[in-house]
Amino acid sequence: MIAVSELAFSYHSNAPPVLTDLSVAFPAGDTTVVTGPSGCGKSTLLYVLGLMLRPTAGRLEINGADAATLPDAERSGLRAERIGFVFQDAVLDPTRTIIDNVLEGGLYAGINPSTARSRALDLLRWFGVEERPNRRPGEISGGQAQRVALCRALLKQPSILLADEPTGNLDRASADIVWQALAVARDEGAAVVVATHDLSRSVEAQHTVRL
């Protein structure tokens, strides 16, 4: 469960606020789609929910505690252990193999390496990118890279899964796989929040937030 109340955010103290007086709950076990025109603040909201930006005002509740005011080390700990984040472009480490990229999803939470490795291989198999896990990100397609990024986000079995236009750069078939994976995470009990300007995807969600 993650919720914001009277949330406001602006990038600079003298810049106009991107988000104002926003109060939404994102229940566990549900998918919430965040929609709106380009530049309305969808990514900004996801970064705030993902503890990469601090709210300018308001509360950000994660399991009942206000994560907005926690010290940086504790916010990093929540990112490492509880929150899975999928960027619009995959943001993989180009110098490391596919399997190492997936394992990075558990690195900062200190997940047991052998448990992590077998789970990582399971995930890669589920997403159909298990062949040659020793390839580098430069040797796979954009759709495959986004699936690897999803594996990385799912490795820690996050209770909050945030995806910022995860299918924006993908063809229809790849996009379908990504949406299926988001549904699986939701069914396992995660609070799933997806930013998208593709309104046709609203049918996949239990809730829709328009910015």
Partner: peptide
């Protein structure tokens, strides 16, 4: 820069 940005986003602390 991108490498450290990714690590921070994935949960690496500043001290890490």
């Amino acid at each position: 820069r991108r490498d450290f940005g990714r690590r921070r986003a994935l949960g690496a602390t500043r001290s890490a």
